[in-house]
Computed example of a mutant assay.
Amino acid sequence: MYKALPSIGLLGGGQLGRMLLQAAIDLDIKVSCLDPDAEAPCHELAHFFKVGSFQDYDAVYQFGQHFDVISIEIEHVNIEALEQLAKEGKQVFPQPHILRMIQDKRLQKQFFQDHGFPTASFVLTENQADIAKHADFLPAFHKLGKGGYDGKGVQRIASLADQSKGFNSPGLLEKAVDFEKELAVIVARNEQGQISAFPAVEMVFHPEHNLVDFLFSPASISKEIAAKAEKIAVDLIDKMELVGLLAVEMFLTPTGEILINEVAPRPHNSGHQTIRGNETSQYEQHLRAIAGLPLGSTKAKGVSGMLNLLGEAGFSGPVKYEGLNEALAISGVYPFLYGKKQTKPFRKMGHVTILGTTKEEIIEKSEQVKSLIRVVS
C-alpha cells in the first residue's frame, strides 16, 4: 500500500539534525530546520532553513504551520507553541506533554518513581540553601530541574563544604550511586505501537566535563544484564507512549541492579556509532518512527565504538583538524565532522566511529585515533 511520506519541520539545526538529514536523503523525506544560528550545521543541507529561536512561541508556531510533522533535535524548545500546533491537527513527535515532563528533571525523576522504574533516591530542592536540610543524603549530585545540557547543570556535593557549588533554582539532590558501568539503551516506538531497541552500549565519560568521551557496543555485560537493560527501556517508552526515539542512560551497580539516570527524547550521543555499526542507524529509526513507517532492524554488524572529537584546550577560532589523513588510513575508522566553523575548548566538533571484531581492537584503534586527531584553530 502506498503511503505518502510527510514533510518534517525540525526544531534545531545542530549536529544531530545534520545526521538526521543525511538519513532523510536516503528515504527522500524533506526535512526543514529552525535554528537561531545562521551557520548551524544544518544550514546548507536542510530542504529549507529558517533562522529563529526554537524557544520563541511565535517562531516555533509559524515555522510549524508549513509541515506535516514537527520534531526536535534538542528538547529545550517552546512547548506552548507545540501544544497549539498539536491542537490544530499537526503531528508533533515526541508529543508535547512528554517533552514538558522530560524538560524538567524533577518531573522526569518523579515519573520514574511514580511508575515503578528503578532510579537513584532523590529529594527535591528549591534553592542552594535547601542542600543543608539534607546533610545525611550526601554525597549527592545537585541537578538543575530545567536547562541543564551536556554536563552543565550538574554539581557533585560531597559534603556541606560544597554547598556553594549548588544551584539557586529549583532542582533535585540525587544520591550518589556506586556503579560499575554507565550504560545506554536507545529505543524507538512508532505511532502504531511497534517498539524496537538497539543493543546496550557502555559509556566512558570525560572526567572533567561530564561528556561522553568514548563508548563501545555492545556493552561488556552478561546476556541477563543486557536483557534487563533493554526491558527497562522498552517498558519506559511503552508507558510514556512516546512516538520517536528515546535514549535511556543507566547505571549498573556492583550487585547487578540497573538504575535509570536520565532520558533524552531524540537521537543521542550514545547512538552515533549506529550509522556504521548497525543495520539501521538511530537517525533512520527516528525518521521511520515519526513518519509512521515500520521500524528497521537494530542488529549490530559487529563490535563498534565511538570517540567524540572535542575542541582542544587553548584553541578558539576557525577550526582545523590535525591528523585526519593519518586516521583515515586506518581500516574501520570513520570520522564524522559536524560542519562547525568555529572551535573552542571542549566543544563537540565531530565524532569517530570505529568498527572491529573485538572490544580490545576497538579500544586499541580508539587510542590510535586519540593520538592522531586534534581539533585546533
Rank of each mutant, 00 (worst) to 15 (best):
Y2F: 14
I8A: 06
G14Y: 07
V31L: 06
C33A: 13
L34K: 07
P41T: 09
C42Q: 01
E44N: 13
F48G: 07
F54R: 08
D56Y: 08
D58H: 15
Y61W: 14
Q65C: 10
E75C: 10
V77L: 09
A81K: 10
A81E: 08
L82D: 09
Q84P: 00
Q91A: 14
V92I: 15
P94D: 13
Q95R: 15
L99R: 10
L107P: 00
Q110D: 10
F112E: 05
P118D: 09
T119N: 05
A129F: 03
D136M: 06
L138N: 00
A140R: 00
L144E: 04
V154D: 01
A158K: 11
S164F: 02
G171Q: 05
I186Q: 06
I186R: 13
F198W: 09
F216N: 04
S217R: 00
I221V: 15
I225T: 14
K231Y: 06
D235N: 14
L236D: 05
G244Y: 11
G244L: 11
L246A: 12
E257Q: 14
S270V: 09
G271R: 13
S281Y: 07
L293R: 11
S297D: 15
A300N: 13
K301C: 05
S304L: 02
G305Y: 04
N308V: 08
L309W: 04
G317Q: 09
I330C: 02
S331D: 14
K341M: 12
K341C: 03
H351G: 02
L372H: 05
